[in-house]
Structure formats: structure tokens, C-alpha cells
Nucleic acid binder design. Structure first.
Lengths: 185, 185
DNA sequence: AATGCTATGTAGCGCATGCTACAGAAGGTG
DNA sequence: CACCTTCTGTAGCATGCGCTACATAGCATT
């Protein structure tokens, strides 16, 4: 129960690093094994198959990202639309989170084609994001946060998209305009 | 000069269909050849290598998409932010354009990892989008369309993203809120 | 010491990929 | 007709992939 699980956990942690670095397309069993300091043979001993391995590793990555988000904006803190957008963008748009966002984009592209396990994992992560935003948005007297938080989600994903394809300036410009627009309401 | 080019053009057209259907990840030389009614051997006679073939085919897909956009909103027509957003979303968010948007997402994911030819093509397409929006947005007295059009671009990409990962309702909700917010300005 | 379960290395299978070598067909030109 | 360039089919190479068969090493229990 212990040795096997300990090595399994260690492998997951290192594979998460590797996955963030090379992306889904570059994550072969052999390369993952090398990154984890083991062999492909052992990975298939720890995990049922590659899909299982990827699902577990992606969950680990998602957990790390959640921790980073909570670190930047602790649970309980609520901000109005414009300010929350600025805060979120400052976090997920930072270069240090770029590997996460690249992977997120790749995952979404896979999910859009209903590829497994991309679809399931992406759905879970998106649910997490959605809940995170709803728990941090301050809608004032308006009691329904669904609309504004959906908009914020869309805006942030759009900013990430622009950044990802190399148009950081467009993303920053859009972020500026979005916060301004949200404030003049 | 003529027979070869005619067959080449025909191949490009059919390969564009196939590429839209299966995506970059599913587009092998052999499957592309089958879709085009020829052999991989001939594809590599028509094109320098797979990258060349993909670049040309993607350009063709992009041209088709541009035509579809111009069809939905002819050149010369200008709309204020909110209305333009609604019009664009009604177009690119329609199920008939879904294959294009899935491919676009996949291309962006590849571009984010600087994979060729994804990077170059995605940059060109994004430039086209950007110009298209700037030429259709009506900023009123405000003479600088860069800010609002960047925001519109980001919002639309975000809506596409949400839709792509299976959250159409979130996308529609966000679109509603975005147009409402843009109008109350 | 014998037995049996856990862990791991070695080797390789079958398949798909991008791409190439070679040979031959087709067809215009001298 | 002979020849030469353009085209196209056949076969295959080298690589990387996910995954498996088999054998063995280590350790624990009887």
C-alpha cells in the first residue's frame, strides 16, 4: 500500500511538471516516464492505461492551479465585476501561469472534439472556475451572480486566448476597456 | 501548368473539408489523401511537405471563413459595440460554423506552443479578424476603435471558448450580459 | 528453506506516421 | 519512331507510439 503509492504520487507530481512543459501533444508514455524517473513499463503498472494516467495527472495540475488562484484571492473575498476582472487577469495572465493556460487551451481544443479524457477533465475544471468566480464576485443588490460571472468568465478566457496566440497587447488593451466599461455602469 | 494546378486546387478544396471535420490532430497525409481522392505520394508531389500542405489548406479554410463573415455582415456596415457583438456572436456561434471554430481553437493551442505552421497561420487569421472588427465597429464620436474592438475580439473568443467546451448556456448568458452592459454605457 | 506475492527490467509486437527510392506509364517533341 | 520530361503506382524505410509477454529480483510469510 505504501511504497507503490508513494512512488505513484511522486510520479504524478513530476509528470505534472512535464505535462505543463510539453503539453498533451508532447506527452508520450516514454517521455512522461523519463520525466518521472521511471520506465513506461512502470507507468502502466501504476496506472491502468495512458488515459487513466493523463486524467490523474491533469487532476493534479488542476489542484495546483486552484491553490494558486486561492493564493492570489483567498476564499471569502468578494469584488465587484471590474475589480475582480482586473485581479483575475493579473493572476492568470501572469507569465508564471502561462504553462497552465497553454495546457488549458489545449485541453479545451481536445474537449471541443469530445476527445477523452480531455472532455471530462475540462468540464470539471470549468465547473471549478465557474464556482470560484461566483464565490468571489460582488453583484451588489443584484442577487443573481450567474450573468455577470458568466460574462467575466468569457472575458477572461478571451483575454487568455488573445495572449496565447501572441497578442498580449490586444489582451491588455481589452482588459483595460473591460474594467472601464464595468465601472461606468 | 494547368492539369497539375487544377488537381492541386481540387485537392486543397477537399482537404479543407476533411481538415474541418477531423481537425489538425486527425489530419494525416494518408487520410488527407483519401479525402482528396488521391494518394499520399501525390500530395507530396503537389506540396513540398506536410507543413506546406497544411499551410495552404488552412489558408483556404481561412478564406472560406472570411467569405462567410462578409456574407453575414457585408463590408461597409458599421454597428455600435453591443449590436456588433450580438451580430458577430450570432454568426460565429452558429452550429454551422462550429467546425471552423473548433479548428480555430486547435490552431490557437498549437500557436501557443509555437508549433509551425500553426503560429504563422493563426497570426494571419487573427490579423484578419482584428481588421474585420475594426472596419465594422462604430465608435461614435470616439475616433479610436482599437480599444473597443480589442474588447469585442476578446469577448467573442471567450464566448467561443465556453461554447467549445460544452457550455453553450454560459456563452449565451455571457453574450446577453455583454450586450446589455455595452448598451448602458 | 520453500512458497508466493510484489515490483521491475528486457524485449518486442503491431500499428500509424512522414517521407523516399525506384520503376514504369503517359504524352508531347525532335 | 526515339527520346525526354512529366506524372503516378508500389513498396518500403525509419521512427515513435501504446501496450504486452516473459522472466526475474526482492521480500514476506509459512
Amino acid at each position: 500500500m505504501s511504497i507503490r503509492d508513494a512512488r505513484r504520487r511522486m510520479a504524478i507530481d513530476r509528470m505534472a511538471d512535464h505535462l505543463l512543459e510539453v503539453g498533451m501533444a508532447g506527452a508520450s508514455l516514454r517521455s512522461m516516464a523519463a520525466a518521472a524517473g521511471t520506465s513506461d513499463r512502470m507507468l502502466l503498472y501504476y496506472f491502468a492505461d495512458k488515459d487513466d494516467l493523463l486524467a490523474v495527472t491533469l487532476e493534479h495540475v488542476a489542484a495546483r492551479l486552484t491553490a494558486l488562484l486561492d493564493d492570489a484571492l483567498p476564499p471569502g473575498v468578494r469584488l465587484p465585476h471590474g475589480e475582480l476582472l482586473r485581479a483575475v487577469w493579473a493572476t492568470v495572465g501572469s507569465p508564471s501561469l502561462q504553462p497552465y493556460m497553454r495546457l488549458w487551451l489545449e485541453l479545451a481544443a481536445g474537449a471541443a472534439r469530445s476527445r477523452m479524457p480531455d472532455r471530462a477533465i475540462a468540464g470539471a475544471i470549468m465547473g471549478g472556475f465557474s464556482a470560484w468566480v461566483e464565490s468571489h464576485i460582488d453583484t451588489g443588490r443584484d442577487s443573481r451572480p450567474a450573468g455577470p460571472s458568466a460574462l467575466l468568465l468569457a472575458t477572461v478566457e478571451g483575454l487568455l486566448f488573445l495572449d496565447a496566440i501572441g497578442h498580449r497587447e490586444l489582451a491588455d488593451l481589452a482588459a483595460e476597456n473591460a474594467t472601464a466599461l464595468a465601472s461606468t455602469r
